[in-house]
């Protein structure tokens, strides 16, 4: 691969007796959007957690944007995630006590931005995701699709190298899912951000550049989306 931003090799991870990952090699190119598919319990979430430095794999190595994650301490990995990684989950990832704009500003503040700059940038991102009118609302008062777009704004606002999304549209109906996904991919493609996206839905996967399939903790196939 020309310019891999993620290089993982020989990843294994067990939870007690359950072997969630059993030896995975994966490269993701800079700017690529990769869909990860596979049956429930196959190890998809565990895989991206290892790629993102949330979990330390039992064996194998992960390098993201030139940094070898397995060599870092837990605190250093936290720092790394803060600076280079964005996350989007299925639901419930926004802090319920904060407004949309505060939620988006949070990672910026964590990284040391000034309050006013953080607010300004957050509002810009909300605007890009068509949420300008939701800025002052709290998550409890938003629709599921709106909340997911706020989560996406939050993941993208710090301009990370890679965004990991674990079924970001899984809790939405198909129309809302499509809207959220296109909104996300539009801004991602525009900014050249790399995305690793877990999904059960083939239509969602169709938006990706490439899809990989995980089965029983192993990669069972990888193909450019168009090739199918």
């Amino acid at each position: 691969m020309a310019d891999p931003i993620i290089t993982a090799s020989g990843l294994t991870k067990s939870f007690g007796a359950t072997a969630a990952l059993r030896g995975i090699d994966l490269e993701v190119a800079r700017g690529e959007v990769v869909a990860v598919m596979g049956p429930s319990g196959s190890g998809k979430s565990t895989l991206i957690h290892c790629l993102a430095g949330v979990l330390a794999p039992d064996t194998g190595s992960v390098a993201v944007d030139g940094t070898e994650l397995t060599a870092l301490s837990a605190d250093a990995r936290a720092r790394f995630r803060l600076e280079r990684i964005g996350f989007v989950f299925q639901f419930g990832q926004l802090l319920p006590d904060l407004t949309a704009v505060e939620n988006v500003a949070l990672p910026l503040l964590m990284a040391g931005a000034r309050r006013r700059d953080a607010n300004e940038r957050s509002l810009q991102w909300l605007d890009r995701l068509d949420l300008a009118d939701q800025a002052g609302k709290s998550p409890g008062d938003m629709s599921g699709g709106q909340a997911q777009r706020v989560a996406i704004a939050r993941a993208l606002a710090p301009q990370p190298s890679v965004v990991f999304a674990d079924e970001p549209t899984g809790s939405l109906d198909s129309v809302a899912a499509e809207n959220v996904l296109t909104a996300m991919l539009d801004v991602v493609r525009e900014s050249g951000t790399t995305v690793v996206l877990i999904t059960h839905d083939a239509r969602t996967a169709a938006h990706a550049d490439r899809e990989v399939i995980v089965r029983d903790g192993l990669l069972s196939g990888t193909a450019p989306v168009g090739a199918r």
Binding site: V54, D75, F80, R81, L82, M110
Partner: peptide, 11 residues
Amino acid sequence: TFGLLRLGGMP
């Protein structure tokens, strides 16, 4: 909430 913050890299 706290778990999410830590995941996002909050020390």
